[in-house]
């Protein structure tokens, strides 16, 4: 196991940025460390200075504004999974984050780490992709806001360079049933906890009079990054929200994805078929949530 030389716990975002700037690439942001520490252990990480952002108060807050959420970059999965606001107004994120790892991992791991680690199956990132999250990235040069879908370079490779910048917060529109907007998450794994998904699906949608206004569908791990079938999402506008239409949409999505065969996580043809099942189930679940019947 390699080891870092110094470990900092800045109390403000400015201080964290100052430290990154000072060490010119030899420093690195650490959140819960649930991905980074194993990388040190496997000698795959060699940063000398670790900048822990989990003690920065403003980065640990979940704020529900009038029509949007602002999630601090150091908010943990456990915080999101346990938040009544998130459950009420971003259910897909509550459902996704409660599936991440084990209680220990959810207590430590952060939602921004879930993005920066850039795994195409990361449950939190899949939900944020369906939520069309806007990610605020802060560096010594200031702040930029980038849609989550544009942050991926490849499997495990993020465009966020955590040796010079940090995800300070994540913003997305709230999901409000009153406005006929709903969301849902579905997942298939080898066991009921502490397992990466074979397939996971997050959807957010809006309906009017039994028709889709719009829907966003995020699927993992079927591509190098959380996958959105944009063309099908377009096609879906105005389609009825009945079982038959959903079956057709799910089938089309399934035809579009190209999952890989994995000796541990299932063959391509099975995963392709499961995309169909889970997309269908997620859409049905989200639509059912708009009805009077609890789903």
């Amino acid at each position: 196991m390699r080891r870092w030389e110094q470990y900092f716990t800045p109390q403000s975002l400015e201080e964290a940025i100052f430290l990154l700037d000072k060490y010119k690439g030899a420093g690195k942001i650490i959140g819960g460390g649930t991905d980074l520490i194993p990388q040190f252990r496997d000698n795959k990480e060699e940063s000398k200075y670790l900048v822990d952002v989990t003690q920065i108060p403003e980065m640990k807050e979940i704020s529900l504004l009038e029509d949007s959420f602002v999630i601090g970059g150091a908010v943990t999965h456990a915080q999101l999974a346990g938040s009544q606001d998130v459950y009420n107004y971003a259910q897909v994120l509550a459902e996704a984050t409660v599936c991440v790892g084990s209680p220990q991992i959810r207590n430590m791991g952060t939602i921004s780490g879930n993005i920066v680690n850039a795994q195409p199956a990361a449950d939190g990132a899949i939900a944020l992709t369906a939520l069309d999250a806007q990610v605020h990235i802060t560096s010594a040069d200031g702040e930029k806001v980038v849609p989550i879908t544009e942050l991926y370079r490849g499997v495990g490779k993020s465009k966020v360079d955590s040796t010079i910048e940090v995800i300070s917060k994540i913003e997305f529109k709230k999901i409000d049933k009153v406005q006929n907007v709903s969301s849902a998450f579905e997942r298939l794994a080898s066991r009921k906890a502490l397992a990466l998904p074979m397939v996971n699906v997050a959807v957010c949608l809006k309906t009017t009079g039994g028709q889709f206004d719009w829907a966003r569908i995020a699927i993992g791990p079927v591509a190098q990054m959380p996958f959105r079938p944009f063309l099908i999402e377009d096609e879906l506008r105005g389609m009825p929200t009945d079982e038959e239409s959903i079956r057709i949409i799910a089938e089309e999505v399934s035809q579009l994805v190209q999952p890989r065969s994995s000796k541990l996580r299932g063959s391509a043809d099975y995963r392709k078929e499961m995309v169909k099942v889970l997309v269908g189930r997620a859409l049905m679940k989200a639509i059912a949530r708009l009805g009077s019947e609890p789903y």
Binding site: S102, S190, R191, A193, L194, A195, L196, K263, L264
Partner: peptide, 15 residues
Amino acid sequence: IPKNLHEYPIPTAND
């Protein structure tokens, strides 16, 4: 093929 307990699932309390 499974190299660790991440790749080799055994039942958890939830299972």
